[in-house]
Design a protein around this nucleic acid. Sequence first.
DNA 1: TTGTAGGCGTTATCAA
DNA 2: TTGATAACGCCTACAA
Lengths: 342, 342
Amino acid sequence: MQKTGQPTINDVARIAGVSKKTVSRVINKSPLLNGDTRLRVETVIADIGYIPNPQARALALRRNYLVGLVHDNPNAQTVMNVQRGMLEGLQGTEFELVVRPLNRGAQSMLSDLRYFLERQRLFGVLLMPPISENESIVQLCREIGCRYVRMCSVSLDDDAHMVASNDREAVRGAVAYLIEQGHRRIGLIAGPQGFRSATERRAGFEDALREAGLPLQRSLIAGGDYTFESGLVAAERLLDLTPRPTAIFSSSDTMAAGVMHAARARGLDIPRDLSIIGFDDTPVAAHVWPPLTTVRWPTVSMGRSAALKLISGVGEEEELVEEPSLFISTLIRRGSVAPPID
Amino acid sequence: MQKTGQPTINDVARIAGVSKKTVSRVINKSPLLNGDTRLRVETVIADIGYIPNPQARALALRRNYLVGLVHDNPNAQTVMNVQRGMLEGLQGTEFELVVRPLNRGAQSMLSDLRYFLERQRLFGVLLMPPISENESIVQLCREIGCRYVRMCSVSLDDDAHMVASNDREAVRGAVAYLIEQGHRRIGLIAGPQGFRSATERRAGFEDALREAGLPLQRSLIAGGDYTFESGLVAAERLLDLTPRPTAIFSSSDTMAAGVMHAARARGLDIPRDLSIIGFDDTPVAAHVWPPLTTVRWPTVSMGRSAALKLISGVGEEEELVEEPSLFISTLIRRGSVAPPID
DNA sequence: TTGTAGGCGTTATCAA
DNA sequence: TTGATAACGCCTACAA
């Protein structure tokens, strides 16, 4: 045993009376191995508490047992949820999670990421939206041989590289619920341009109107950028309309909170005078008054599945469980929706 | 150059006509080096774009260029803020951030952490509250030679190992503000037992009352665990009191949101009938109605400073900027406080 | 089925 | 001030 106290492959080999390579084979579950030998080595490993050194493996394999989460922080809670899901998926494996925020706006974004991936020789990365939509980033991953899974509001890639939510259908359902309640003048606060999630959610909104035979009025659509302030401003514009919309679908909870403030500032009661539905189900949704009806997408599950996809085929022994690629969102009905009064 | 395309130290040595060790000395800024040689080597390094391989260094040095964030996820936003701060501090260095959540309740917590730290040979870790208060964890770090910085609501260690907020004083100030507004019956919703932050905030609350010569009534203190539900329940108990408190200080924003719901359920208007102050300044504070007056602690700055402390003395060249150890919180005045009406 | 030799890219030792 | 040589702990190729 070394002075560091950590037993190495040499210690195992010596004690078990075999060569290093044999130990290596045991560790890596090589199929061509005598059962006896394997058992003997495994016993020694368990006995002295040997753990393979990840740094040495990384050097020899030219590949690190590190999985990355690359994101652009649109929403802290969402990032944390995905992170938690990934950690669940990585639980019990030899992989660790490395988090890497990126600045979407920066010129150097691509080179930053390349530097990071090449240097650390990540095993794989989960690309969160909206950067998962950037094809040159995906191209980079392919180029340098880094596994990747993309997370997005719609499928953009094959199943092995994708965890997608069904934003369009989810929003369609949410708006259909509003229509069911009797609403006919429904406003939309859309997400920022260039975000696939914004496009999908808007499409879902339009789907619902079309299905119900309701006209699509441009004036009832306002743009936002997922922030509270943008929701506030957009809502002010919509609430200035005559006749006023009786309901608003906001493409994010945070913007929905802005809508609530705008409504309150005009003395409108929610949901009596205005119904609101948000998207995300972040903590704020449950904590505002009235509690916000919203669309919840399974961020934790998506993170977990993505992690499992990233490392699939590594442990060999682990069943090749088919991880899903499409994740269904659900409408969480709380107190911000009621039938219109007029 | 290897087939991988990444130039190695050997390439540099060959081209510069020196030995590997000399290149190594240049990389590591060894002082005993001829200026000419250094310049020549540096030129070659820049020319061919050589980047030292972190895995190889980790193996040779028995130490990884990885910094960990160990937390127990009390609050997603707080964790994200700290994480962001750390990444700012690590920006431009060779260090990467690894995130590691821990389950405070689990029996295996300590062994989980040991396994993680020993295996990955982390350079250092930032311990977030409340696990930063666990002395056996700190002991573990010392034992295995992993640098650490503790983040807490009060100083628990020497400056090199500490970033502390001044919760007690901050809460004292917040409650003093309530008293200034004319409140005399002020309720406290305390944090969970065993959390240092809970103790500190409570102490600050008591300080303020004492200073103002107000009696400390046990009945005006309710316990919570930082969750929304616990805040709701605690507030219900306080609001059942006769006479009712005219103000409540809640030890977290999330609990404060619960207080708001409880107040609303009784038809109380905030801040007319009840003033509320929270703690954390999470997004929910700004988004509830009325916007919550709260205490903001500089989580991002604390993360940044902690990261800088962790890696201080590594780059050699970088100035040994004295990073602060005490961080001052500020009272963010919004709309949830008004003078009492009775 | 198992072992030997050599390499992964870096740093440490010690001599020149 | 520099350089040869040997770690660091593991894996691949090839041989036995």
